[in-house]
């Protein structure tokens, strides 16, 4: 392990510890026993089958958005836009899944729905991509802006006819597009929880991205461009195209993250569905450190915190767990030269 990666791992661990301490301090200030709350957080998640299922459900979306952010980061880009890409994809996939003829067979309906999610996510990354590749506009700014535009667009579409009258939800998707819940396909123990076939799908996508970055020509060049765009330009690697493809695939994967909530859980899209997973993905990517297993563990960690927040919500505000997230992100971002380089680009050049 190099000195740089050792210090980064150290920062992650220290950040986690500091975040946990800060959260427990808040709990104590609320007049609750940190020990009791910590215990409740664990028993509410990993101690009961339903809790496990819910953790896995949350981790599914976080894994995909984490992979999306991580992929962009490997190319030297900071995609803050997973949140908006997910929201737009959620609406698009719900619209498609509800609009397909009811008789469409599953082998057509499901791939169509998934493709819609990916395409919508990628489409939402097009504007930041063009700004970045053609005009050197900083993608952090443009993707943040696109998140706000996504919010407005989703609200607009729901208000103007995509929602069922009097509600903020879309019509039901046809059954052929449903991703089966895992409790329905043999894992009875997870009974009642929302985890679905989106989970193995997410794991598969994670593996595919890892293989793509390692084995394919374009993937390898994306990583090289992320390390040194100037050297790649001098070696006649098409830097702009590689950055572009990284940002689009990143958007597509963030879009796929909408599949779990829409096709695996609700069967429709409603305002706010999946919200937060896009930003959570940034934390997952920062902790996952460019490794598929790391991303998986980080997704489980933040999935646990999300679900644990619900479990302790009766006694302390669930936002206590967001403190852990925030402190970890700050610690890792400070310690990670890669993040600093991306964040400072444009300031120093």
């Amino acid at each position: 392990m190099t000195a740089a990666s050792r210090s980064a791992v150290l920062a992650t661990v220290a950040g986690l510890a500091a975040g946990w301490l800060a959260a427990m301090l808040l709990v104590w200030l609320y007049g609750e026993s940190p020990r009791a709350i910590a215990l409740q957080l664990v028993t509410g998640t990993w101690a009961v089958p339903y809790g496990v299922g819910q953790v896995l459900y949350k981790a599914t979306a976080l894994l995909l958005t984490g992979v999306a952010v991580d992929l962009a980061l490997r190319a030297g880009l900071f995609n803050i836009g997973a949140e908006g890409q997910l929201a737009v994809a959620g609406l698009a996939v719900a619209g498609t899944a509800a609009g397909l003829p009811a008789t469409t067979p599953a082998w057509i309906a499901l791939p169509t729905a998934l493709a819609t999610a990916a395409l919508a996510g990628a489409a939402w990354a097009v504007v930041p991509m063009v700004l970045r590749v053609r005009y050197h506009g900083h993608e952090v700014i443009s993707t943040i802006m696109m998140n706000r535009v996504a919010d407005a667009l989703v609200a607009f579409c729901l208000a103007r006819g995509m929602a069922l009258p009097g509600t903020v939800r879309t019509a039901d998707a046809i059954p052929a597009t449903h991703l089966p819940r895992l409790d329905a396909v043999g894992l009875r123990a997870l009974h009642g929880s929302s985890v679905s076939a989106a989970l193995p799908l997410a794991v598969g996508v994670t593996a595919c991205v890892a293989v793509w970055l390692r084995r394919s020509r374009i993937g390898r060049e994306v990583v090289l461009v992320g390390m040194s765009p100037r050297a790649c330009e001098a070696a006649h690697i098409p830097v702009g195209r590689r950055l572009g493809v990284a940002l689009l695939v990143s958007g597509a994967i963030a879009g796929l993250a909408a599949a779990g909530p829409v096709l695996g859980n609700k069967g429709y899209f409603e305002s706010g569905l999946g919200a937060g997973a896009g930003f959570g993905g940034i934390a997952v990517a920062l902790i996952g450190r460019g490794h598929p297993v790391g991303l998986g563990l980080a997704a489980l960690l933040f999935g646990t915190l999300d679900q644990g927040g619900l479990a302790i919500n009766g006694r302390v505000p669930m936002e206590v767990v967001t403190v852990v997230q925030g402190v970890v992100i700050a610690a890792v971002a400070l310690a990670d030269a890669r993040i600093r380089a991306v964040a400072l680009r444009g300031v120093t050049s």
Partner: peptide, 25 residues
């Protein structure tokens, strides 16, 4: 050079197309 990439990759930087079949290196 790409300083943080392996020497192996630096020795063929920009020439991956030569070692690629069906998109796979």
């Amino acid at each position: 050079l790409v300083p943080s990439a392996l020497v192996r990759d630096n020795l063929v930087l920009g020439e991956l197309a030569r070692f690629t079949r069906f998109g796979i290196v």
